[in-house]
Amino acid sequence: MNEIVRVMDVTKIYKNSRGIRNVSLAMERGEIHVLLGANGAGKSTLMKAMAGLLVPDSGSIVYCKGGSCTEDLRERLYAGGFIIEQPELFGYMTAFDNLMLKGRYYQDGKDSAEEALKMVGLAQNRDQKVKSFSTGMKQRLAMAMALTGRPEYLVLDEPSNGMDIEGRSDLGRLLQELRNDGVSILLSTHLVREAAEIADRVTVIHDGRILKSCLREEFLNDGKTLENWYLDQIRTSVAVQEAGI
């Protein structure tokens, strides 16, 4: 079994009746799994449920290791790294002190925090207070926070928000390096072209339901760009809904 996190039949409906319905998804080891969907499609809700930030109405999420799976949230958080929506760090603390809030839970936490700062290019800002950081730097630091503790998997909800072109390019390269090191990544983004370059698997979520999930080869075989393939999935779904099928 190569799965590291499995989402099984998860439903979470908000008061405005939006949310996700019966969503199932698996993160495979050493794979970049891109989640595509319009605003309000349910991407963030799914990721929040995976990070334990909200309790699903039904269904379960498990973390798997060595052939056994557990629903324990602490195990899931310990093995993972998360960026959920616009992450806020603690402005009155330095970059390194922020990372050590997570680093303290790991035996090699200090080393991994130093390493994470280098990986995101903030090593020279180690002792600077976070309140003086730009939006892009804060986003890089959030990525470093996710990487502290050398996670086995990453759940990244629009991690390139607020980053400049160079930052996005660095992030893409970093994600590929991590994937090559065996880290699993679930990535939600609106930057479809950039996602197409690194995705191993793509899942389309629409109106709170999974529309389609396929490997990179499948949409490449269709001879379409990821953008056009995604739009086709949405149009087909809308047409089916309108036809009442």
């Binding site: 992450p87 997570k102 839970y105």
Partner: peptide, 15 residues
């Protein structure tokens, strides 16, 4: 209100 509570509870410990 600042949003950093999310960062806090993402640390690997129970609620």
């Amino acid at each position: 209100s600042k949003g950093s509570l999310r960062t806090s509870v993402l640390m690997p410990d129970s609620r």
